[in-house]
């Protein structure tokens, strides 16, 4: 499918439109809001949500990826009228949801190899087209299966503009196999392969890649980043992506309590802090251009975010801040400047 077809995309998701009227009220940023009508609330607030990733899965306590996957797939299920197939790369998400012979998925779901999810999804989309079905296709994987191992297939899917929404759940490392570094692991973070040893412990600066930008460079119809700390933004982006045909990419920041070394109850707090300090910019881009950035609501220094995680503990040894904290802050400041993350909280 080479032509990009646009179906009707509302200027604002209905629930967001409501909330603009009542931005000051309690419940504004919560999952639901009893003061607005059922149809205007988020998918996750609904008793009828599909729970595409249901209970009994074997993810760790407080798993951000399990949460992000349910958020995204439930929204896509509603947007596609429950006519959806998911293709999964190898990774935590695949392992903890489908230990033979059980599955947590409540939709047709396929797993082939670590690196080929985008290519398999392309094939599924082609098959649906040939069979004359309107079934939509999602490919999903972790950052390892996306930014490293599956990157060639992903880039191919982008440049062919195949009708697939690829969702990357970014927990910044290979968590399933014992927390090894990926090309999405941030600088200074300790992993099993970037230990907190030597003069500059943890992951080195100046490496890795930010796939959303690479996706934007493919000039595909839609690219977005999202976070489990902002459900309304995430759902709006999935709904918007589902209304577009062609190659689409959403990368969701999903904290990993195990790999990041944080209490399981802090998962959403970590995601929130990552966004509020500017380290994880939340934006969307259409056809190669950044069109929207989610503003920081309450800016915090990156130090507060780092301090919550044991993978950065070496930056605060002996009660002294490592000078590299300032370098990470500089990265945040650069993101804030690049995407215009500060300013009026009235969004564009």
């Amino acid at each position: 499918m080479t032509d990009v077809q646009m179906t009707d995309v509302p200027a604002l998701a209905p629930d967001e439109a409501q909330q603009k009227l009542k931005f000051y009220q309690k419940g504004t940023f919560t999952v639901g809001n009893r003061l607005i009508s059922e149809g205007e609330r988020s998918v996750q607030a609904s008793q009828a949500r599909s729970n595409a990733l249901t209970s009994g899965h074997r993810a760790c306590q407080g798993c951000g990826e399990a949460l992000g996957a349910r958020y995204a797939i439930d929204a896509a299920m509603r947007a596609s009228g429950n006519d959806l197939i998911a293709v999964n790369a190898t990774g935590c998400l695949e392992v903890f949801t489908t230990p033979y012979p059980e599955t947590s998925w409540q939709l047709p779901w396929l797993h082939s190899l670590f690196g080929n999810a985008a290519a398999v999804a392309t094939g599924v989309a082609a098959a649906m087209r040939v069979k004359g079905k309107k079934t939509r296709v999602i490919a999903q994987g972790g950052d390892g299966g996306t930014t490293d191992i599956g990157f060639q297939c992903l880039s191919g899917m982008f440049e062919r503009n195949d009708d697939v929404l690829y969702i990357c759940y970014d927990n910044e490392g290979y968590m399933n196999t014992g927390v090894q570094r990926s090309s999405a692991t941030p600088p200074a973070a300790r992993t099993a392969t970037t230990p907190a040893l030597g003069p500059e412990p943890g992951n080195v600066f100046g490496t890795g890649k930010f796939v959303p930008k690479i996706a934007v460079a493919h000039n595909i119809p839609y690219v977005a980043t999202a976070t489990v700390a902002d459900l309304h933004d995430l759902e709006r982006k999935v709904v918007k992506a589902m209304a577009i045909h062609g190659a689409r990419y959403i990368q969701i920041n999903v904290p990993c309590p195990l790999g990041w070394g944080a209490p399981s109850c802090d998962t959403i707090k970590l995601a929130r802090f990552a966004v509020e300090c500017g380290l994880y910019p939340i934006f969307e881009a259409e056809h190669g251009r950044v069109t929207h950035a989610r503003k920081i609501r309450k800016q915090i220094p990156v130090r507060e975010y780092l301090k919550l995680q044991k993978r950065y503990a070496h930056l605060f040894r002996g009660g002294v801040d490592d000078p590299r904290v300032a370098r990470i802050q500089a990265i945040c400041d650069a993101h804030i400047a690049e995407y215009g993350l500060l300013g009026d909280d009235e969004e564009v």
């Binding site: 919560t30 407080g62 951000g64």
Partner: peptide
């Protein structure tokens, strides 16, 4: 407007947050 500024401190106001944020889908609405 003023009434809706109440935070409902200490008592559930059915914001659906617990129902939404549970990674294990273990909250029943």
């Amino acid at each position: 407007y003023e009434a809706r500024r109440c935070l409902s401190c200490g008592n559930c106001f059915e914001c659906d947050n617990c129902y939404g944020v549970c990674p294990d889908n273990a909250v029943i609405k």
